[in-house]
Design a protein around this nucleic acid. Sequence first.
DNA 1: AAGGTGACTGGCG
DNA 2: TCGCCAGCCACCT
Length: 118
Amino acid sequence: MGNVKKKPAEIPFSERVYAAVRRIPAGEVASYGDIAALLGTPRAARGVGWALNALDGDSSVPWWRVINKRGAISIRHPDVSPRVQRALLEDEGVEFDENDCVDWAKVRWIPEELAGNG
DNA sequence: AAGGTGACTGGCG
DNA sequence: TCGCCAGCCACCT
């Protein structure tokens, strides 16, 4: 597992990623770039992927709700097959088209602070 | 301190 | 439109 040691006074980027991902409701998904943007670093999509990779596929964080900008699963973890992530999403009602992509218009998670409501 | 890696994204041909 | 290359950020050695 990825040892992430940081100063207690500062929240690690990874933890901020986990917190954001945990906010994604079931049946909705977000892209790595969206999570990064939500954290204030829209170019840190790589960092988001790295942070989720550190979860090792076993955590309270709904990592499966994070996919790439194309709406497809971009997982590369050896222990967890992309099929698993897809199954988890389908179990939540997320549908994939023949291109193995989701419909962003339907399943894209929009944070309330960005939805302009509230 | 410097170099390398990775579950990304955008631009060019 | 699809495929490859470069840029980007965070973390590790």
